[in-house]
Simulated scan of single mutants.
Amino acid sequence: MNLHAMPHTFKYLRTAAIAALSLAAASCNSNPATPLEQAPLYGATIGGPFELTNSAGETVRWSDFAGQYRIVYFGFTYCPDICPTDVQRMSQGLRQFEQESPELGAQIQPIFITIDPERDNPQVVGDFVDNFHPRLIGLTGTPEQVKSAAKTFAVTYSKGEVPESGNYLMNHSAITYLFGPDGQPIATLPTDLGAEAVAEELAKWVR
């Protein structure tokens, strides 16, 4: 055995061990993005062109958000429970993600689209979204425009029975979609599991 060579051998092994530990630590501390090809809605034909109106009365198109991630939720402002709960959790989850990853969070545009244009005019929609997130956009339109947009986003809805009070409800599918910068669907956000689950889902796909 060459005893003179041993210190060099130990030095080499020690350096290699440190490098290996550093690599392992880096792997543990990082959160590698999941390939988009593995996204639940990858390749689905959901979402696409629409022409609606924002709270300022301006025309808004799907193409206006090109290059941004988009969170899209269809609901109605007179909803007593599900819609405000979903939008609140969606907004809280986005806020949490923004705190953890400010630059990535800034790339996400949250959008609320009414399925009750009969009552949800631009001002009503604007007042509603102001309660949740400073960048949340509220959109409405003519019944035909809303119907077309809902169909494009695979959202179903119908008007409930109208009581004497006139305060009817809307039946609708409650889905919170996440779309990529190219407008392609990525996943649904688990608002039913709370804000933290929403933030975790955003962290999987927004990069």
Rank of each mutant, 00 (worst) to 15 (best):
G43C: 01
G57K: 04
R207A: 10
T114E: 08
S165R: 08
W62C: 01
T176P: 00
H133Q: 07
W62V: 01
M170N: 09
P134S: 05
S63A: 15
P190Y: 03
F50A: 09
Y69T: 02
Q96I: 11
E196T: 15
T142W: 05
G48S: 07
A197S: 12
P185V: 02
P181N: 05
Y177N: 03
I108G: 04
D86E: 15
A19M: 14
I113H: 05
R119I: 08
F97W: 06
N171M: 06
Q38S: 13
L136P: 05
G47Y: 02
Q184R: 14
E161P: 00
V162A: 06
P84S: 04
E98T: 10
P163L: 09
V162I: 15
L202G: 08
A66G: 02
A174W: 02
A154E: 12
L202N: 08
A197C: 03
T156F: 10
A44T: 02
P117Q: 12
R89P: 00
V87K: 08
G138R: 11
I186S: 03
L41E: 04
A187G: 00
K151T: 13
H133D: 09
P143V: 10
A20K: 04
T9F: 14
H172S: 10
G183V: 09
R207C: 00
I175R: 05
A56L: 13
P32K: 13
A16P: 01
I115L: 11
I111C: 05
A26R: 04
A25L: 15
V87P: 01
Y78D: 13
N54Y: 04
A44P: 00
K147A: 14
P7H: 12
E200L: 13
P40V: 02
G75A: 08
F128Q: 03
A203Q: 12
I115V: 15
R95C: 00
E201V: 08
